[in-house]
Design a protein around this nucleic acid. Structure first.
Lengths: 233, 233
DNA sequence: ATTATTTAAGTTGTATACATAATTAATTAA
DNA sequence: TTAATTAATTATGTATACAACTTAAATAAT
């Protein structure tokens, strides 16, 4: 019988860092020291480096040449860039399959909406609402048959909502507002009206980026000395 | 005075591999051996590994766990995934800035068109036509003020046109056809008609993917055992 | 006291060596 | 002769060691 392979350390480390970012244990701007991480995990620097490179390619870390890496600092511009792409991918996915949305699809969306409603009634924490919001958007993306698109969209949503801005999410929407916004999208999806779907989803993202922008333009220095780590051409 | 830093080997290696893929020196399916590459370059495996990881994240290489990496094999599906995203990003970029396309922008596009015409008149090689085609599409993307979008679109176009399918490009369009297609896009851009621009660009991509599909469905095995190298969640 | 130069500490980039997993070749059994 | 099992080779994953660069701290000079 074939045994399970030994886990790849670099993947473990990548997961660990993502968890820490999500938890808020690692915050934007925090520097990552390879040696320290390696020691913490009881492994060498080699797999740690690979994990960091991966996380950088995913946009969660940024690097200065020979000066190490830190958790990505989200300037208002970077937030906008990510949101524009999220909005584009999600709205277009939904618009393209608009006519072929099934009853089952609608039920899936509705069940998430109902969970939101229930969470409000039960006075649940914001965390849960945010989680349900992500679930809703993921359900939309799952309508696409393009795995490359789904992977990309996941990446952007990770950068913005679930990870780097996790701590801000709870402050820009009340649970009721969050429910309203997703209700509107749900209704649009049920209408199967391509243009309406596109418009509603984009409006939602535009509103989010507008509300988020306020949180980031205060403390941080504008000088984005981020440098691409690899050749462009 | 500050001297230029010593070049980062991993970046050099990444450039080298990209060049070889572009030249056709490395073809889809060719396996990459770290040790061999390191020896060729006269360096150790460490920077080579980093370069390979980068190229994998860019979609140019694919890896099997513990079985190394090879140049990405483009199945018809993968081609479609990439083209859909290229079409989406490019058409949406153009559509969003439709009303604000300046005379200067139009001149830039026209100059490329004219170069194409001249290349035909001079009986130039297909390579040059393909190059001008890329230039045209890049000019469209440069209308976007979203660098993240531009970087992504560059990545997709790299995977498809300039690199992995370079050898096929010359066979799916005659120079005259290529000129016609870009002429149509140019006219749409000049009209500043958002919907028309969107439609024309998408039609161009749809036609390309259709014509390309034929080339890839013959020889290659369908079993895409590609594996994501890092955790999804 | 302030600025400039130098020196030292610390971190990343690279090299080498070893361990582990997988493919290929070889050997043995049916 | 063929199939299956085992040995050997090969390539990746990881560990350790060293070199180069960056940052800062400390000393010297104005």
């Amino acid at each position: 019988m074939k045994q399970f392979s030994k886990p790849i350390y670099s993947e473990e480390v990548a997961r660990l860092i993502m968890k820490r970012i999500r938890n808020g244990n690692l915050k934007p701007g925090d520097v990552i020291r390879e040696a320290l991480l390696a020691e913490e995990c009881g492994i060498s620097r080699a797999p740690v480096r690979e994990a960091l490179h991966y996380l950088e390619s995913e946009g969660l870390l940024m690097s200065h040449q020979k000066r190490g890496k830190c958790v990505t600092i989200l300037t208002p511009d970077v937030i906008r860039y990510n949101y524009e792409l999220s909005a584009l991918l999600e709205s277009e996915t939904a618009a393209q399959v608009a006519e072929s949305i099934t009853e089952d699809d609608q039920k899936k969306f509705l069940s998430i909406i109902e969970k939101m409603r229930a969470a409000i009634a039960a006075g649940k924490q914001y965390d849960e609402h945010a989680e349900l919001g992500s679930e809703f958007h993921k359900a939309i993306l799952d309508l696409s048959d393009n795995p490359l698109l789904r992977a990309l969209a996941t990446r952007f949503s990770r950068v913005i909502s679930k990870f780097l801005l996790y701590q801000h999410w709870r402050t820009i929407y009340t649970p009721q507002e969050l429910l309203d916004r997703h209700m509107r999208i749900y209704e649009a999806l049920c209408s199967r009206d391509r243009e309406r779907i596109r418009r509603v989803i984009r409006e939602h993202y535009a509103e989010s980026v507008e509300r988020l922008a306020g949180f980031c333009e205060n403390g941080e220095k504008k000088t984005d000395r981020r440098r691409a780590h690899f050749p462009k051409e």
